[in-house]
Simulated scan of single mutants.
Amino acid sequence: MPESERSTEMFERILLPTDGADSMDAVVRTAADIADRRDAAVHVLYVIDDRAFLTLDDEMKDEVLSELTGEGEAATDRAATRLREAGIDVTTGIRQGDPADEIVSCVGSADADLVAMGTRRGDYANSMVGSVSQEVVARAPVPVLTVNLVTEE
């Protein structure tokens, strides 16, 4: 939608990437709060990181893809259920590729005007989620809200 046709309201469509971890509940709660206050819709996204396929034998790829798709469906369903229980309009999607690339690409296809995602503190070079969130913050054409994910150490 061209910028001139957009409503003056901000945050009408929120993109919420999830990896399915229990710690993502904090991001879901944050997105639900923003969506409720703004009467916004949320698009929950799970990205199957196909970089994991680089070392797999071809005959194993289908089995692994099926397993990861199942994990993605469970992750998006869990977040979507919590959002719907809060009265939020929700859509879900699963993509395959480099997570940061797919999240940034989905901003456009979902017509999102905010990304709400988790990040784990610590060494970004050694944290896939951290490096993904850092990349999305740097490249996304819309604001990115990061929520620190608390994990047991």
Rank of each mutant, 00 (worst) to 15 (best):
P2W: 14
S4Y: 08
R6G: 11
S7T: 15
E9Q: 15
M10W: 13
M10H: 12
E12P: 09
L15K: 00
P17F: 04
G20S: 05
G20M: 06
A26P: 07
R29M: 14
T30G: 07
A31V: 06
D33T: 15
I34L: 07
A40I: 06
A41D: 08
V42S: 00
V42L: 04
V42K: 00
L45S: 02
Y46H: 08
Y46R: 06
V47M: 01
D49F: 10
R51I: 11
A52V: 15
T55K: 10
M60V: 12
K61R: 11
D62F: 06
L65Y: 11
E67Y: 12
L68I: 09
G72L: 07
A75H: 00
A80S: 06
A80I: 05
R82N: 07
L83M: 07
Q96R: 12
Q96C: 10
G97L: 03
D98V: 13
V104A: 02
V107D: 01
A112K: 02
A112M: 04
L114I: 01
M117F: 05
M117K: 03
T119R: 09
T119E: 08
R121I: 14
R121F: 11
Y124W: 13
Y124D: 15
A125C: 10
N126R: 15
N126Q: 15
M128P: 15
V129H: 06
G130F: 10
Q134M: 14
E135L: 14
R139P: 10
P143I: 00
V147D: 02
V147R: 01
V147H: 00
N148V: 15
N148W: 12
T151R: 14
E152K: 09
